[in-house]
Design a protein around this nucleic acid. Structure first.
Lengths: 215, 215
DNA sequence: ATAATGCTGTGAACTGATTCACAGCGTGAA
DNA sequence: TTCACGCTGTGAATCAGTTCACAGCATTAT
């Protein structure tokens, strides 16, 4: 099979290419060159060709890539054979933003349950997603075959929530809490640390301004 | 000076170390070894030492790093001489989560203005931040000396908003819209693409499960 | 006073990702 | 039919980031 683990940067870019391709398809475009896709994605053409190579798809030297087929090829790599279910933990502003954003978006990947420790937030349906109390987590995750968890709880609760999700069978986490999680090696964790990101942007924004100001 | 541009991964980790150090300080810890900090941050000890080296600080072979001093040294690199002001564009769920999270958090970096195109959301104060209509953006950004912009608007509006912010003088952007921004080279852009991230987590979560299931 | 310990700082090696550069090909023009 | 073009696919070179491995040192124990 060609599904030997891809580098994670590549996986991220493939996800982006697929969205760009879907946009092109909507606009009726049937073929696209690597340099066009590259421009849209903000990367180099060589990068696009390498990434496409990783999916096993080949374009034509004269036409470029067929939009429809390339998208399908990326899908074969990114999407599993079955739908993957996602659990969201923490239904504050951030959690609700996630629910609003992903409600019925992708068929292959959907948030099927939400959890919160606040009794006032549970036992209702938000954007089509049922919100359970924390005590139900392990049962629901198992019953729904959930493999991915999104952590949108306060920092202090993050580690505990991660542990509970992993115990229940989750093997991938998207962590919005600004703290590193201690997890076993078979679990993939992606940190979305807004604090760090904002500080980084501030740092480089300052570098840019200084360059303009200074010598 | 030692402030030649640092690699951006390094900047991100320094931000994290600083938060960990502040935690240690609160717990009354005065010294810390690279391997301890490494464990807390989820990186190697050699990595920590390299990163610390980049700040110009030196620890003692026997005591390790002085918590207080290392934090100060990181601050000298990450924080500019003056406070940096941030503008938030888009006051939906995500935008409000940002406001709630950053309200009066760091003294050196604070959201001082928010903008939205929805008349129902503007001309009020959320978490201490005044929310203006989009028409005011260029004026307010200039008047407040804002250098960093956070884009939390729908995908379709993102490019336009980015352009407006840059025109007004912003040199760093934190982009939550799942689309690449086309920006001039002096502007630093950090993408926080939740769609991509979630697909990536799903991909690797699946790989992990398959390993357990398969041969 | 001397030796043993276990740390830091750092040159060098390594690793993974990106880019270069070009052979090979399918198409359209002559 | 033949040629010229400009693309793709990919081996090789490059580059950035990380890790290794060890010299040097401040401290503690003897």
């Amino acid at each position: 099979m060609l599904d030997k683990r891809l580098p994670d940067r590549t996986v991220g870019r493939l996800s982006l290419y697929r969205r760009l391709l879907s946009e092109l398809r909507k606009r009726g475009v049937s073929h696209v060159y690597s340099h066009e896709l590259a421009k849209a994605a903000g990367v180099t053409a060589a990068q696009v060709r390498r990434d496409v190579m990783a999916t096993g798809y080949s374009g034509s030297p004269t036409r470029g890539y067929e939009v429809e087929e390339l998208a399908a090829s990326i899908g074969k790599v990114l999407d599993g054979p079955a739908r993957q279910n996602v659990a969201l933990v923490g239904v504050g502003n951030l959690g609700r933003a996630m629910l609003a954003y992903f409600s019925g978006r992708r068929p292959n990947l959907s948030i099927v349950a939400a959890f919160d420790s606040d009794p006032g937030r549970v036992n209702r349906v938000i954007n089509g997603v049922r919100c359970y109390p924390m005590g139900e987590l392990s049962r629901v995750v198992a019953e729904e075959g959930i493999t991915v968890g999104v952590i949108a709880v306060p920092t202090t609760a993050a580690q505990e929530v991660a542990a509970a999700l992993i115990r229940a069978g989750v093997t991938g986490l998207l962590n919005f809490a600004p703290t590193p999680l201690h997890t076993p090696p078979h679990v993939y964790v992606q940190d979305m640390d807004v604090t760090t990101s904002l500080e980084r942007v501030a740092y480089f924004a300052r570098q840019s301004s200084e360059k303009n100001t200074g010598a």
